[in-house]
Design a protein around this nucleic acid. Structure first.
Lengths: 350, 350
DNA sequence: GTGAAAGCGCTAACAC
DNA sequence: GTGTTAGCGCTTTCAC
């Protein structure tokens, strides 16, 4: 493989426009101290020659890398991909992230990192050393990992924490977990439900606790008890099924269940079927996330949407703004999803 | 933002190991002419210091960029993401591509490019100039675009063409479209169907013609006629629905329909429902792709799988092998998917 | 086998 | 405002 050199470099442009390298560089980077006429001449040369700066060289010169990393949990991402259940978290991140990056001349690079490993710090440090990204987007459960935050901070890399509640460095962006769970619970309360079960997510996701709080808050305000109505899963189907069986097997079973993921809600649906309960007549079910599978379920699930594309887009914008010198938002940025009401919820049987 | 410099560079390693820069470079790149003992000493220093070479600097020095681009059609990809129908082509590419890249020290970068644009050449040239990838993976409909192939060839960039039939530069990888369509048709013939309709994909996808050939071949061999049994769609739901109505409205309608995408098959299902036909009793339906939606359909669709993850993994391997000096395969690499038999196919009503 | 020198394409710092 | 100089961290010559 031949040594691949840049076909047209800043030198060619400078020669063609009859100016110095530096002036071309200034024009490329929209820096001041270039006379309009001169800038115009340079821009013409750039267009004529079809010049595009080399990212590697820009980076070497000591400026930006124009790279933003999206860090996702390796195991969960890969198992979602393998399962082919329509989980589109990554796709929605790319939708929001790539397009926003492109608009600003940045690239988004997806990276998978081990969560539970003590290697995580070394692994991430290596990635940073190799790629030297200008920004990093953290997704749960990394968003609340203080080791990662500290590392990024030390390297002076702008970063956003999706699904984080603030506190600590970085830009916190929340998808209104507490409010969302509250909204979902209120929807069920408004239908007339009083005994509303909640299937929480695993504890290493801080959103899990937030959602539980929302459910508890709405219940409390409605004067409904939460006793014996909380179960814990790990976001997957079997754990939802098991949790539902535990809740439905109680002396006074719930008439509705709110699950912290679509997969767990499908598990709830399965458990209901096994028990001969009809949804929504005997049991109402609400899920979180609203991945495609929620619409294809039977019945289609009422679900709290997770606005991943929107929140990722915002994360990119805030990172780039910070790189441009603007201050990061003091308070967490909240982007709420909508409750998509479908056929899995109805008034309880009298 | 402070000027971000490499914390530990090749210089530090060289100093620490008491050797020259060059020796460290040789060790990093597994080059000959380093005594084992020396190499060992360097490796120790690398580990001790946690050194990781900067990709940008490696690229600048004139070597690899360790970057492979996955080029996907912008419009189709974005509309799939927006539609949230569970289409997981991108995810499967990432699954196969990222993991294989990682295993070889490469990164996969997803890029969206306009298909039908005359800007495509300039757009791609700009991306290449900016990123200087070592390899590119082309997906339909780019795989058969001679302009792209020529451009890549001129830049001496290794590239793979997924879903291509060979001919021209680059590594052709086919997902056995003709054989797949043949296999699906034979499945229906074996069930006793004789009038099997086919909903083809759009013409700018060469796979469309391949699949039609497979269907025609199987029909011919079975002595079945194809007259009035071919309709054309553009892979989406409405086009599948319209095509089905056209086929089913004929004087002698088909008892089975093979559709070139899951979405079109769902359209066929909808058309059947509108006409009061029961699937599979009145009409058998087979789809192509086997995205998650095929499993969630009613009834679940018998589908020809597209082994995207496998073919992308193979593409990455072949690109990296070629970068390593090995010759590209002379003939197209064929990776066949399986026919997933589900509840949408049965023997025709007598 | 190993090292010293030059240069990749760009930007920062400083001079003019 | 503009040009000049000196690197960035690495690889490629080419000596030894």
């Amino acid at each position: 493989m031949a040594r691949r050199r840049q076909t047209v470099t800043i030198k060619h442009v400078a020669a063609d426009a009859g100016v110095s390298l530096q002036t071309v560089s200034r024009v490329i980077n929209n820096e001041p101290n270039v006379r309009p006429a001169m800038a115009e001449r340079v821009r013409e040369a750039i267009t004529r020659l079809g010049y595009v700066p080399s990212l590697a060289a820009q980076r070497m010169g000591g400026s930006r890398s124009y790279l933003i990393l999206a860090l996702n949990d390796r195991d969960r991402t890969i198992s979602d991909w393998r399962a082919r259940q329509g989980t589109d978290w990554v796709d929605q991140m790319l939708l929001g992230g790539m397009l926003t990056c492109a608009r600003h001349g940045y690239r988004l690079l997806l990276e998978l990192v081990d969560t539970h490993s003590d290697r995580i710090e070394r692994e991430l440090a290596a990635t940073i050393a190799a790629l030297q990204p200008d920004g990093v987007i953290l997704t749960p459960p990394h968003s609340d990992n203080p080791l990662i935050a500290e590392l990024l901070d030390r390297h002076d890399i702008a970063f956003a924490r999706i699904g984080a509640q603030g506190g600590g460095a970085g830009i916190a962006l929340s998808m209104a977990d507490e409010a969302g769970a509250r909204r979902a619970t209120e929807h069920l309360l408004a239908l007339g439900h009083r005994r509303i079960g909640f299937v929480a997510g695993p504890e290493d996701y801080t959103t899990s606790a937030q959602r539980a709080d929302g459910w508890r808050g709405a219940m409390r305000e409605a004067g409904a008890s939460c006793d014996g109505l909380l179960a814990v899963g790990n976001f997957d189907f079997p754990s939802g099924e098991a949790a539902a069986h535990a809740l439905l097997g109680a002396a006074v079973p719930p008439s509705a269940i709110l699950a912290s993921s679509d997969q767990m809600a499908l598990g709830v649906l399965a458990a209901a079927r096994e028990r001969g309960l009809s949804v929504p007549d005997d049991l109402s079910v609400v899920s979180f996330d609203d991945t495609p599978i929620a619409r294809f379920a039977h019945p289609p699930l009422t679900a709290m949407e997770q606005p991943i594309a929107a929140v990722t887009a915002r994360a990119v914008e805030l990172i780039i703004a910070q790189l441009g010198g603007r201050a990061r938002p003091a308070a967490p940025v909240v982007i709420a999803g909508e409750l998509k009401v479908r056929a899995s919820t109805a008034a309880p049987r009298v």
